[in-house]
Nucleic acid binder design. Structure first.
Lengths: 257, 257
DNA sequence: TATAAGTTATCGTATTACGATAATGTTGTG
DNA sequence: CACAACATTATCGTAATACGATAACTTATA
């Protein structure tokens, strides 16, 4: 009984941890590699992989390396399909995209990051490796800062305690002071901007929306290349962004989730 | 020890089954609903949901209904990120999209269906609810028929035994005979077409690719609205499609997975 | 071919997940 | 408002199962 609640279903937790061990750098792993990476006994990994393979969540190649199976994608797809907010907002997002002709994102707060739940991407030379499911830090994204700016000070302070600032670019805010100041401005303005804080060349404007208890739980953002980004543009995007975020808040307020 | 292999990690299997219980029609479920739907004892469901909530795979709203959590999306995202073939093909697919200016799809065979692994969608009036992770039948998709057409006859016969034909449109092939004939033509041509067999107004051309053992394991397809679709178009798309599918086959041949 | 490393199979034991039941909380109805 | 019906949470003894050590076997490496 190590951590957390009273019910602990170990093998379920371990099985999911095993799936989470895979990533861009670890596409294929052998039994022992998995055992080492997860810190599980090799017998345990053997049982886990056997079960997961049988269910289609893992595949094994002829070199006895394990890969994630397609069942995992299908599972991920289930979420977007079974998310009322996303379904509701989809037409609004399409309208927003048509109106501003820039990449638009729907983010939801998940722990200490924002996760892309829907993204309509403008095709251009510079393509980002962002998709539904991508998790991004709060402190260097327009969506994240928009959410933070509406959080209670207590919450923000606790967040600042545990966050590990990383300078993705020279423009990334990496001190609690700098971030707090930026959040104050954002709060007053009702929107947040990200000017090349996460990636050079990438800018965005984000507006938060709120659940029925008034807590910011997500944001809509519009992204644009740095060379086209300016205050005039922000002003132009602001009204449609606020309209879309407002629709989200309203939906969450009426549909008691 | 009901079915399958010797190792059976029940709670892992049940936990994943629980997640799979969610879908467009079942976005939010209570404990007892989940218990009924999955056929698990309520105590079991209680343990499963507690564990999954703690791990972020489920969320519970104030009405005590469970929803899929964002962790599931993130997990799904892991697959596409950790799939060598997809990473390799992405630029080819972008080129293909530019060249033909139609929606292109990368499908992989998974059981008796094809799953979209990557999709570059042309924006147009008619938008389909298809995304990465969508699973589609083999017998009424260009990709599926392209794969089937290169399968050994034995395999196809076994498939025809177990498949449950459903007429999505009046054009859907719903008999083994009709399908077999179509597959014969496809095999000779080296590509398969889907003319409004899955959805009215939707057509596609698909070309299969092969793993290193020569078994067809996926397909590239190009989709177009029915009003624009004709033989001349197929001819125009064929060469770039074959080129892309060829790249996939070559990749799978060299990278021993 | 010899040696090491990795994978699969076996098995007794301690742990854990199971499901019945009871207690508590919630919702709907007269 | 009180009662009933239902749903959720907590408790607990037992049976089952997941655990991990070990051995047998297979595959890579020098």
């Amino acid at each position: 009984m190590s951590s957390g609640g009273i019910h602990h279903l170990k093998s379920l937790e371990k099985g999911l941890a095993l799936l989470e061990a895979f990533g861009p750098e670890t596409q294929a792993m052998t039994l022992t590699e998995l055992s080492q990476r997860c810190g599980f006994h090799i017998s345990t990994v053997q049982r886990l992989t056997a079960t997961l393979c049988r269910l289609g969540y893992l595949k094994r190649d002829h070199a006895k390396r394990y890969h994630l199976g397609l069942k995992v994608i299908k599972l991920g797809y289930r979420v977007t399909q079974s998310m009322a907010l996303r379904t509701f907002l989809l037409p609004y997002l399409r309208d927003l995209f048509e109106e501003i002709d820039q990449t638009v994102n729907l983010f939801l707060l998940e722990g200490d990051e924002v996760v892309i739940v829907e993204r309509i991407e403008k095709r251009q030379i510079l393509q980002y490796n962002l998709h539904t499911g991508s998790g991004l830090p709060l402190y260097c994204t327009a969506a994240g800062k928009a959410i933070l700016s509406h959080m209670e000070e207590e919450w923000v302070n606790a967040f600042l305690e545990r966050v590990n600032f990383k300078a993705f670019t020279p423009h990334t805010l990496t001190t609690p002071q700098a971030l707090k100041e930026a959040l104050k401005v954002s709060r007053e303005q009702g929107y947040a901007v990200n000017i090349q804080e996460l990636a050079l060349g990438a800018c965005a404007v984000g507006v938060a929306f709120f659940d029925k208890t008034g807590i910011p739980c997500g944001a809509i953002s519009a992204a644009a290349p740095a060379q086209f980004f300016n205050m005039e543009m922000v002003k132009r995007y602001l009204e449609p962004l606020k309209r879309t975020a407002g629709a989200a808040s309203q939906f969450l307020g009426n549909h008691k989730d």
